[in-house]
Every structure is written in C-alpha cells, then in structure tokens.
Nucleic acid binder design. Structure first.
Ligand SMILES: [Mn+2]
Ligand SMILES: [Mn+2]
Ligand SMILES: [Zn+2]
Ligand SMILES: [Zn+2]
Lengths: 146, 146
DNA sequence: ATTGCGATTGTTAATCAATCGCAATATACG
DNA sequence: CGTATATTGCGATTGATTAACAATCGCAAT
C-alpha cells in the first residue's frame, strides 16, 4: 500500500469516512504526476483513464485532501484555484511563466528563515508561506524578442 | 493634482480613453485608505460616500488600474480576488491572519535578492514576487487558547 | 453653439465555476 | 442478512463575473 494511501485512509477513518473506489481513483490520478491541476484538468485526466467520475465528487473530495495534507493550493496564473500533491515532498515554491504556464520549482531555506523572523517580530504564528514568482521563461523571452 | 491622478490620466490618454467622473470617484475611494478591497467592498464604500456607481463599471475599470500600475492583486484569504493600491508605495508583502483577516505588511530586501538569484539560475525574467504569509495573529492566538 | 463619433455607463441578460438537493447505491457493522 | 450512514451522480441552483445593448457623455472639429 502506498504511503499516501495509508495516510489518507486513516485520516478518513478518524472521521468515520470511507476510502471508496472513486476516492482512490482520484488520488491515483493526482499522485501519478507532479503536474499542477485544477478540477477540470483532473476530470479530463480521469476521463482519459476511462473513469467516469462526476466533477461534483472531485469538488467534494478536494477539501478533504487539503485538510489531510495530501494536496495544497498552488499559485496559479488562471483565475480559479489549482492544486499540487504535497504528501511526500519537501516544501518548495514556484516560478510560473505568465506566457506559457511553464512551472519551475525551487527551494530556499534562507527565505523561510527570514520569514520565521518576520512572523516573530510581528507576533504572527505562521501556517504557510505562499510564494510564487510570476515571470517569463527563457523560451518565451526569445519568442517575444521577435 | 494628485500624483496618481496625473499618472492615470496620461495612461488613459495614451490609449484614447477618458478620465471620467466615475473613474475619478473610484480612484479617490481606492487611494483614500491603504486597506485591501474587493469589488464588493469597494462598491459599498462608494455607496457610503453617496455615489451610485454600477459594479459593472468597477469590474471594467480594474484591468485598467492593474495595467497602469495603480493597483495590484493582493494575496487574499477569500476565494475571490482582492486588491490594494500600489502607486507610490515601496514593494512589500503581507502577513494575513486566517482567523480575523488582519493584515500586516513587511518589507525584506534580502528575500528579493535571493529571488533575483533564483530567477537568474532558472533563466526566468521576474515580473512580480507574490509572497503572502498565512498565519494567526497574536490576538487570535490568545482567543484560541481558551 | 452645433455636430459627429467613439468611449462610457447602467441595465439586463448570459456565462461559468462551484455548490446543493435528492434519489439511488454502496459500505460498515452488529 | 438488515439497518444506519456515507457516497455518488445527476440536474438544478447560486453567485460572481462578463457580455450585449441602447442611451448618454466627452471632446475635438466645425
Ligand atoms: Mn510544485
Ligand atoms: Mn499592502
Ligand atoms: Zn514561458
Ligand atoms: Zn487574527
């Protein structure tokens, strides 16, 4: 049994909820790649796998996945929320190309250290550092020059 | 004539657009405080000032304000976009209390330096660093302990 | 002052994502 | 099994944003 499967199952059990076939299928799709996704792209992905799961079911599952730490909301360039699976990954942040949507990840502990200090100074207890760099990737920059 | 007024007027003129009474009224409301706002709170604010400006007009103006650098989207705790006026302010980031919505600002050039380096390393040209710290403020932390 | 013309506005209708209500199934557990 | 919940899919509904449109406005050229 995969790590995330075990973790999510026990999260559900603690709430009297069930690890159903649908939920398992959705999680498998989510953990099959590290691509960021939104409800619609996930739904499409499931269709390609031959699964007929209603978007309502996805919408209903997402809050549970967030609360259990399976996924988190990502910084997106679209207007609606996007997510990425989180469980099993070190904290990291993103560079997003505003032209092509390409995403690069990076990790910088120095930044977290600094932010810890800021929180302390201001009397806040940090929950999450949301950091996204909106930028133009090298490929798109070359395009733009033309 | 205020700084932002002049700047926005010339932005509009360059596009063959007009600095109308409605646009001026909306901008005055926006620059009257440094509070973050969304379309609805701005609309309420205008009502309180005795102005009857349609939300459609606000929705139509916002992209122009963003493009001209008058405002920018802020990191919000709600599901819909919120904004803050930008013109005339040094770049800064936010701590947001997820319980009461209180916002604190901070500036950390060290972080920007680090991010410049990250962008260089990854070949991205930065447009904007979006950094928001979701946290619990000291007041709310005390409440929670009870 | 008048005219012409594109920009602007408010109203109303259309979109679109997200949520809800409910009847049909599936699951847990004694 | 048999009952009590939880879950699902469907379709309807909501709420925020956008689009269409017809009436005004702003402004520069008569
Ligand atoms: Mn990532
Ligand atoms: Mn601010
Ligand atoms: Zn790109
Ligand atoms: Zn608070």
């Amino acid at each position: 049994m995969r790590d995330w499967e075990e973790r999510f199952t026990s999260f559900l059990k603690a709430r009297g909820l069930t690890f159903t076939r649908e939920r398992k299928t959705i999680l498998e799709a989510i953990f099959a790649t590290h691509d960021h996704f939104d409800v619609d792209s996930l739904h499409e992905d499931l269709k390609k796998r031959g699964e007929r799961i209603s978007v309502a079911t996805i919408y209903r599952l997402i809050p549970l996945l967030v609360e259990s730490g399976m996924i988190r909301q990502a910084v997106s360039r679209a207007g609606h929320p996007t997510y990425e699976h989180l469980f099993g990954h070190l904290p990291h942040h993103h560079l997003i190309c505003v032209r092509c949507g390409r995403v690069a990840e990076f990790r910088e502990e120095r930044i977290e250290k600094i932010l810890d200090g800021v929180c302390e100074r201001e009397g806040f207890s940090p929950i999450e550092y949301r950091l996204g760099v909106r930028a133009v990737c090298s490929t798109c920059r070359r395009e733009e020059k033309k």
